[in-house]
Simulated scan of single mutants.
Amino acid sequence: MSAVPVEKKGEGRSSVDRESNNQQLLHLEEKDVVTSVATVLSDICGPGEWMAMEKLHAELVEQFGNIWHHSQVRRYLTFEGWLGPESKGKPWYYLLMLLRKYPEHFVINTRSKGQIILEFVSLVSLLS
């Protein structure tokens, strides 16, 4: 009888461990993507310059589309997973959401022209 509760505890622990591992992997993926974005921005933009999210997205696809693990490419560079109305047909939507999580590194500037909304990004250090 005592073996059953021990197994249940073990199963619960492995589920917690799996969730912890998944969170660590997601964090490492985010860090890799953020580093790649910072590298692209610093290589292309000078101090005080902004890059359109559309152009940044295109650069990332070109430079890292075949290098990043498939799940990273799918998550940050495609529509997959963001088919809702909030993405507004922008394949860089999730990438934009990721960059907004790091205001210490990236500044996002949004401009509206009628119905069209354009996003631009710069490194914090390049604005100084």
Results as ranks from 00 to 15, higher is better:
residue 45 C to P: 01
residue 57 H to N: 02
residue 107 V to T: 10
residue 24 Q to H: 08
residue 20 S to L: 13
residue 94 Y to W: 11
residue 22 N to I: 03
residue 76 Y to V: 02
residue 124 V to E: 08
residue 94 Y to H: 09
residue 82 W to Y: 12
residue 99 L to Q: 02
residue 69 H to W: 07
residue 93 Y to S: 03
residue 47 P to N: 08
residue 27 H to S: 15
residue 42 S to L: 09
residue 43 D to R: 15
residue 25 L to V: 14
residue 115 Q to V: 13
residue 72 Q to H: 09
residue 84 G to Y: 05
residue 107 V to Q: 12
residue 80 E to S: 13
residue 96 L to W: 10
residue 40 V to N: 03
residue 15 S to Y: 09
residue 12 G to F: 02
residue 8 K to F: 11
residue 122 S to N: 04
residue 13 R to G: 04
residue 108 I to G: 00
residue 25 L to F: 13
residue 73 V to Q: 07
residue 44 I to D: 04
residue 28 L to I: 08
residue 24 Q to F: 09
residue 58 A to F: 09
residue 88 K to H: 08
residue 16 V to L: 12
residue 113 K to Q: 10
residue 117 I to Y: 11
residue 106 F to N: 00
residue 8 K to C: 09
residue 85 P to D: 07
residue 110 T to P: 09
residue 31 K to Y: 06
residue 61 V to M: 08
residue 18 R to C: 10
residue 103 P to K: 03
residue 92 W to V: 06
residue 123 L to M: 00
residue 35 T to K: 15
residue 58 A to K: 15
residue 75 R to V: 03
residue 30 E to P: 06
residue 88 K to T: 07
residue 64 F to V: 13
residue 116 I to E: 07
residue 40 V to E: 02
residue 112 S to T: 11
residue 88 K to C: 06
residue 32 D to L: 14
residue 113 K to V: 07
residue 47 P to E: 01
residue 77 L to D: 01
residue 12 G to Q: 06
residue 29 E to F: 05
residue 25 L to R: 15
residue 41 L to N: 00
residue 88 K to R: 10
residue 50 W to L: 11
residue 5 P to I: 14
residue 4 V to W: 14
residue 26 L to V: 08
residue 5 P to F: 02
residue 95 L to P: 04
residue 6 V to L: 15
residue 89 G to R: 00
residue 29 E to A: 14
residue 57 H to L: 11
residue 50 W to V: 10
residue 124 V to W: 06
residue 30 E to S: 07
residue 114 G to F: 08
residue 72 Q to K: 13
residue 77 L to W: 07
residue 10 G to N: 15
residue 40 V to M: 03
residue 116 I to K: 14
residue 14 S to V: 13
residue 29 E to T: 13
residue 42 S to H: 15
residue 68 W to N: 01
residue 112 S to A: 08
residue 59 E to G: 13
residue 53 M to A: 01
residue 112 S to G: 03
residue 9 K to F: 15
residue 116 I to L: 10
residue 40 V to Q: 02
residue 52 A to N: 12
residue 79 F to Q: 09
residue 39 T to D: 10
residue 41 L to S: 00
residue 105 H to G: 02
residue 103 P to C: 02
residue 98 L to Y: 05
residue 73 V to M: 02
residue 62 E to K: 15
residue 123 L to Q: 03
residue 87 S to L: 00
residue 31 K to G: 05
residue 78 T to M: 03
residue 16 V to P: 01
residue 47 P to G: 04
residue 99 L to R: 04
residue 19 E to P: 04
residue 108 I to K: 05
residue 126 L to F: 07
residue 24 Q to V: 11
residue 84 G to P: 06
residue 126 L to I: 10
residue 59 E to F: 08
residue 27 H to N: 12
residue 82 W to I: 06
residue 44 I to M: 03
residue 100 R to N: 05
residue 67 I to T: 11
residue 47 P to K: 08
residue 33 V to F: 03
residue 57 H to W: 13
residue 33 V to A: 00
residue 124 V to R: 14
residue 59 E to W: 13
residue 2 S to L: 14
residue 101 K to G: 06
residue 55 K to Y: 11
residue 100 R to L: 10
residue 111 R to M: 09
residue 77 L to F: 01
residue 118 L to Q: 13
residue 61 V to E: 10
residue 94 Y to M: 12
residue 87 S to D: 00
residue 4 V to Q: 14
residue 57 H to R: 06
residue 57 H to A: 00
residue 106 F to S: 00
